[in-house]
Design a protein around this nucleic acid. Structure first.
Length: 324
DNA sequence: AACTCGGGGGA
DNA sequence: TCCCCAGAGTT
């Protein structure tokens, strides 16, 4: 690992106090989320990740949850995750299933390409990695749908490596509480790398995310009751404008009107395909694009290219792997 | 660097 | 309405 970590003591520094305060808060108030459960240890006891310092989460469960969590709020994922994991309990089960089954189970989560990516990742795990997730960062990033964030999340949460997954929450906390200044993407990563405590890397990143979700929120941070308020650089400076988090880089791109958009039409079509194949005329009606054949064609081509649909010789559509 | 990709929740 | 959400892949 080339990343700089903090074995060097932050003992009596502001950041050292911030670390201890945040972890202490996390131990008592951290979110209890289903994918944080460690593997069964055979003792038959219900596991509490935070009660066992060495405990790690199941790698497959971590990967599934992280794919689901990409641009999707944790609460919504938490509602779907247990059932989904029950249906695909390991990579081999998913790899053996048709991708249509995974797209089906993805219903309501959005960004359906993630379901295709997850299925392909499961296949690669079976074909190239003995049915397991790889441990190296570059091997993880080579999996479809796994980028810099997700690779580090798996490394930290599943394998206990000293990695810093920088999501939108962590980026915000780094900019506000740690730096008190806007950070570019690479800069935020470097700052986060330097803060990972060697004894609790997974808990630390979970704690940062929980802080970002509960107190250090994007819109209106709740500084009054924040557990690290007294160590926060932005607060110490008197909350100067602009908000450092807004100058940070992990923000999403420009948002477009949703109703009637390409994304909306794609969603309508895929959702219909989950129920049954469509013939050509039904496709147009489903998308509400009877009067826009060129646009419909472009959208359908996109769905096929993304592995979310296959087209027959008459222009009908069905989910890949599901005969029409 | 800028776009695209779903859908829901909250203010 | 507008903004945001445990991002990644493509152009």
């Amino acid at each position: 690992m080339s990343d700089e970590h903090t074995d060097r003591a932050h003992e009596d520094t502001r950041l050292g106090r911030l670390q201890r305060a945040l972890l202490a808060w996390y131990d008592l108030q951290g979110r209890d989320l289903p994918w944080r459960e460690p593997p069964e240890d055979g003792s038959g006891q219900t596991a509490d990740a935070r009660s066992r310092p060495g405990a790690r989460c199941r790698p497959w469960a971590v990967l599934v949850s992280e794919l689901m969590l990409q641009q999707t709020q944790a609460a919504r994922v938490a509602a779907r995750f247990p059932e989904f994991l029950g249906r695909f309990p390991d990579p081999a089960t998913m790899a053996a299933a048709p991708v249509s089954a995974v797209i089906d189970a993805w219903q309501g989560l959005g960004y359906n390409r993630r379901a295709v990516n997850l299925h392909r990742a499961a296949q690669e795990m079976v074909w190239r990695h003995g049915g397991h997730l790889p441990r190296e960062l570059d091997e993880l990033e080579a999996l479809p749908g796994v980028g810099p964030y997700t690779a580090r999340a798996v490394a930290a949460f599943a394998y206990g490596q000293l990695r810093a997954p920088v999501d939108t929450n962590v980026a915000r906390v780094m900019a506000r509480a740690v730096a008190g200044a806007g950070l570019g993407r690479a800069e935020a990563q470097r700052v986060a790398d330097g803060l990972v405590p060697v004894d609790r890397p997974a808990d630390w990143s979970h704690a940062l995310m929980d802080l970002g979700a509960r107190y250090c929120t994007a819109r209106r941070p709740v500084c009054g009751s924040c557990p690290v308020a007294t160590q926060c650089a932005w607060r110490a400076a008197g909350w100067p404008d602009p908000d450092p988090a807004r100058a940070s880089s992990v923000r999403a791109g420009p948002q477009d009107a949703f109703a009637g958009s390409d994304r909306y039409c794609r969603g309508r079509i895929v959702d219909a395909l989950r129920r049954a194949p469509l013939d050509a005329s039904e496709v147009a009606a489903t998308a509400g694009l009877e009067d826009a054949p060129e646009r419909l064609e472009r959208i359908v081509v996109g769905l096929v290219r993304d592995g979310l649909a296959v087209r027959d010789e008459h222009g009908g559509l069905c989910l890949p792997g599901r005969g029409g």
